[in-house]
Amino acid sequence: MGRSQATFGKKENEKKRLKKRQDKAEKKEERQANAQKGQSLDEMMAYVDENGNIVDTPPDPKKKKEIKTEDIQIGVVRREDMDPADLIRTGTVTFFNESKGYGFIKDSETQESVFVHANNLRNPIKENDRVTFEVEMGPKGPSATDVKAAAVA
């Protein structure tokens, strides 16, 4: 007689597969046996109370408030456009590397450091120069655009 072609690993995998199939069938039968059929609509209904919590009892009609549809805001509230003069800021160049073409400006109002690239310069700048600039959100944070040396008074 020839030897069996099935190896030990194949037999074990087949046993696991059969065991898994049987467990799945048992769970299915258990779910079907314990299923509650025929719940009424009232039993499935959920309500929201005046505090925004989900409850199973209907709200009191005496506490009902009328809300005008025009008072409902969906989405984010629009921001008014800012005056272009408000966008222009002043600051001091704290670091600028001419060979690499980037640096940082310290905003005089917020004291935050703003990245500046050589492509966004109107005229050459160096460290400790007073500059005016506009802030734009870049991929890694705020960056300065339209940078020019401030007029010294």
Rank of each mutant, 00 (worst) to 15 (best):
M1D: 09
G2C: 07
S4T: 13
Q5P: 08
A6E: 08
T7C: 03
K10Y: 07
K10G: 10
R17G: 00
K20F: 02
K24M: 10
R31Y: 07
R31T: 07
A33T: 13
N34C: 06
G38C: 03
Q39E: 11
Q39W: 11
D42A: 15
D42W: 12
E43I: 05
E43D: 09
M44S: 11
M44Y: 10
E50Q: 10
N53T: 09
N53C: 09
N53G: 05
V55N: 02
V55A: 04
T57M: 10
T57R: 13
T57Y: 08
P61K: 08
P61S: 11
K64F: 12
K65P: 02
E66V: 14
D71A: 05
D71W: 09
I72H: 06
I74S: 08
V76K: 15
V77N: 07
V77C: 06
D86E: 12
L87I: 11
I88N: 06
G91V: 00
V93R: 00
N97G: 03
N97Y: 11
S99T: 15
K100D: 06
Y102W: 11
I105L: 03
K106L: 11
E109I: 12
E112H: 14
F115K: 03
V116D: 00
V116W: 01
H117K: 07
H117M: 04
H117L: 04
A118Q: 13
N120M: 11
P124R: 05
K126H: 09
E127F: 06
E127M: 12
N128W: 10
N128C: 06
N128T: 15
R130Q: 15
M137Q: 14
P142Y: 01
A144N: 02
D146V: 14
A149W: 04
A150Q: 01
A150L: 10
A151S: 14
A153N: 13
A153P: 12
A153W: 05
